[in-house]
Design a protein around this nucleic acid. Structure first.
Lengths: 218, 218, 218, 218
DNA sequence: TATGAATGAGGGTTCATTCAT
DNA sequence: CATGAATGAACCCTCATTCAT
């Protein structure tokens, strides 16, 4: 309103396209994570982004396109965050632990990204579910390949007592579920969360009952 | 559908309220599981139920009420199915295994119930998420109380390396994730699924790598 | 507004479907004829029909469907009106004259029907243009088949100086164009309009210049 | 496009205003003829013209202004083309025939011009319809004045059997309709088309049935 | 001069919900 | 009891038009 604002912060005008796209994606992730795909409205996204609706359509396409762009950006961020935390020259358990720490750090820092990816992406159906499933598969392979491959030792392979694919799905589910739980307990650090999970999947209840405890070796 | 209809079943009239409600809930679960809460339409539900829309509103209330009724009925079914499978006089690992078997049997038999509970219930937000979370908590306590309590031995309690609540969340997540995976692999029996999960959470990767394998003892 | 209206005429409620469909089609023809397909809005149509928009979609489908229904209804009306006027046991020229009279009577009485059919139907493109073209073809065959077939006498067939199809297209165009002109001259009776056209297409300029004049022989 | 561009033709800059206006009008005629007034978008026009949208508004004004400019330019072209073909020192029928040939030659060569004028101009409503009607009137007077005036011989004037204005409207309609038909039959030459029409409007069905045929005398 | 960036306004369509019969 | 008929409200999307560079 006032004519003497040095820089009009109300709504910065005439920004380059890349900046606007980022603004829009940020807003979209926020709104999608709050309401889910169907309940989210383009109006709210445009409001949050500080941009008119036509800009969204011009830059990012339809609602579905926009959602896809969100999913892809956040998935890439997550994978990169995990990859950045893994150190290939450590023993398997420590690699797994570091990967998990990175994962929980990401979830804590980017709650909305995680919510969109984990909870909302599957509700759209069709192409997105497949995309997300793919990324889950890549995530598990990235983090747990070493463990699973170590587990399939000595020609045991797939059998009634053991299945790499099944264990992988279970491990990922456990990690995700703990991440959701951690969203309601922000005081638990990522290192502790990762340790808990290690005690479950590395030692197992049997060892825990016996009094054994897993700790990071370093 | 009923076995003794004498009169033309075009649209049975004057049915007792309880029967009508069951028809409607069955249809709602089916439709909600297919499309999710938001994408499901009351029109489709009334079509599938073979009942006019005003009846749904008269008997079950608003769309949200209807969804809540579905969730509660299916959750009760699930919990009862699991409870029916547990045998309290077995050792802890066998109790866990039997509980898991019951769970996977239920998921295989009532896919739609499981889908509604696991995937669709969380996308509505607000009251339902809490309700579902509650039921998850009760489920984990039901199945894993023995294990967790056994794990919290010797006054260790909650600490960095160990947390009953956190482990419980992880275990439930693992079981659920494997259930989802099993939906795409209907040839895997519930006993095998339960065994896989036992090998993960009872023995842990460390023992698996060492060559140990968990098997049902009975 | 007043509470004592014997019959509420503001918006009759709870009418049977067939009645509503007619109301809607009437309104749609009126609005489409005024603004054309693209400039017409479903809002205005629903206002004119005294019906909410969802009713239109429930009963007649999309805007394009609605337009199609208008076109088909009006075209049927027009064809029936013309057919009703033709008397097969008259000589060819009198048959043509009677058909033309019916045509001009219809156009005068149902201006909007004619406008929709003639001017607006071609602007939608695709399927409708073909449909309209078909109806034009049937109309010309209905009215002028006798004349054209009489014209293609003595094995002349299609050649440089003469073509049944081309003449038909020209005749229809002449009749249509005169109909448009007549819309702005409502004082000219259908009999006169038909006579003018007969003098053009039956006698031709050459005879007219020579002083010949065509008159209905009755 | 221009034959002597030295510099890269990506998007020629600093062109004189007249050239730009021609580019824009060419594009507009093309797009309007394809989609009609309402369905045509300024975006597509600017794309086809290779010019940014603000230029269009600067040079030609609003969409309606632009359409008006198209209509006027193309109508002028058409009238000039017909005028160029008429030779005032021939007998009336030959004058008419030559005028028609010019008309059909123009339609064949400038399909888009013809489409815009004939089909799309009337759908906008209001001022344009009047403008187009005016031009039609001038066209008919230009081509058929001789005939009509010859027809209104011997003080007969306007009467039930005969009307200069009505015949003119009919003749123009016949010529236009045949032009539309010819768009789908490009193998028919303009001379043949003109002859067909002459056989209809000069001789009439009566003479045709009698075996008479009109041929260009020259 | 020429344009990328930006939007107000409106259109088609659907859906949860409720009367009136 | 049971339902066909009806709608307010909202949502996704597009387009003519203009500003600021």
């Amino acid at each position: 309103m006032s004519e003497e604002d040095q820089r009009p912060p109300e709504r910065a005008r005439r920004l380059p396209r890349a900046v606007r796209e980022r603004q829009i994606l940020d807003a979209a992730v926020q709104v999608f994570s709050r309401h889910g795909y169907h309940a989210a409205s383009m109006d709210e996204i445009s409001d949050v982004a500080g941009v008119s609706k036509p800009m969204i359509y011009t830059y990012l396409g339809s609602k579905e396109d926009l959602f896809g762009a969100c999913i892809r950006r956040e998935a890439t961020r997550l994978l990169e965050a995990i990859q950045a935390g893994v150190q290939p020259d450590l023993p398997p358990d420590m690699q797994l632990w570091h990967g998990l720490r990175s994962f929980y750090r990401f979830v804590a820092e980017y709650r909305e990204s995680w919510t969109v990816l984990h909870r909302q992406a599957l509700t759209v159906g069709g192409a997105f579910a497949a995309e997300i499933t793919d990324m889950r598969a890549r995530a598990i392979q990235l983090v747990a390949a070493l463990v699973v491959s170590a587990g399939t030792r000595k020609g045991v392979g797939e059998q009634a007592e053991f299945s790499g694919e099944g264990l992988a799905a279970s491990l990922v589910g456990a990690a995700e579920s703990l991440a959701d739980w951690a969203l309601d307990h922000p005081d638990i650090s990522d290192g502790v969360l990762a340790s808990w999970l290690m005690n479950l999947v590395w030692l197992g209840f049997n060892d825990l009952i016996e009094g054994a405890v897993w700790k990071p070796s370093e």
